[in-house]
Amino acid sequence: MLHDFDLDVRAGELLGLLGPSGSGKTTLLRIIAGLDFPDRGRVLFGGDDATGLPVQKRAVGFVFQHYALFKHMSVADNIAYGLNARKRADRPDKAEIKRRVGDLLDLIKLSGFADRYPSQLSGGQRQRVALARALAVEPRVLLLDEPFGALDAQVRKDLRRWLREIHDRTGQTTIFVTHDQDEALELSDRVAVLDRGRLEQVGTPDEVQDNPASATVLRFLGDAVEVEAIAESGQVRVDGRPVPGVVSPAGLIGPVKLYVRPWQFQLTEPSAAHLRGTVRASHRSQGRQRIEVERGEGRPLLVEDFDGERYAAGHPVGLRIVGGYVFA
């Protein structure tokens, strides 16, 4: 289910469609490919209306979530499928197809695997074959549906970097769907955030993180704590103290919600703080520590700090807020 919106994809860019499951991102991708058709609205490719064009004529490369490799064909035949499916007049000759398949196998670093069958490959290798198969037809746009969704964490990271390299080398306009924020932010030139069929924001990874358009975008891009605050004359105050670095939108006066990232808190003396509480638990991971702070009522706050001083449970602390977001 998609609502009305415009999304402009620039030639040569790597665009990430980010959203929770059910947000409509895969539907959007399938509409672009011509696998699904919209009730209304249009799909334009470089100014040409492609809305009524069948999938075969759209010249898109689609990489499916579970790869959809042809089980009964070798890796080389899988990659050559799109070329072999062409009408005789447009079909490159056998030697040319062989050369193109060889080049693509080099590109995906599976040169020795031409005669293997999909069942003999690992998940990551299958993913790369699926990509080569889609690239073989020289598509106008490459569409990837949750390309790394079915892989384990390490393979996923390697493939991410590798996909970025391939994109930088080929300049292929690419749209990929993901529900993983890190993946979208690391890989994309621009990120389009979707939620419940609506396009919430489009921008570079920096833009969507620094200036999220809505609380939905903000929350989807990472953890955030809601803090009761008062907006007045451009400032936002918590417990009477102004919060540095936060400007309230023009005309907004009165009680507001301030959204604070875990790293926008500093632990400090209770007397000089915006908020006070006691440490409930803390744990360390990758040079950072995450501290749960209990405040009498409501859910405990999650605060992120450098892996410095450790705090015992029950230790009273003050929290200074050094940033945050307010939405009109």
């Binding site: 490919a33 011509g34 696998l35 999938v55 075969q56 759209r58 010249a59 898109v60 490369g61 689609f62 499916f64 579970h66 959809a68 490799l69 042809f70 089980k71 499928y81 799109g82 499916a85 062409r86 198969r133 889609a134 073989a136 037809v137």
Partner: peptide, 15 residues
């Protein structure tokens, strides 16, 4: 999925 993949690669329905 495999049929859809074939179609995106330009194959006709019969092919």
């Amino acid at each position: 999925a495999e049929e859809e993949a074939a179609l995106t690669l330009g194959a006709s329905g019969l092919w």
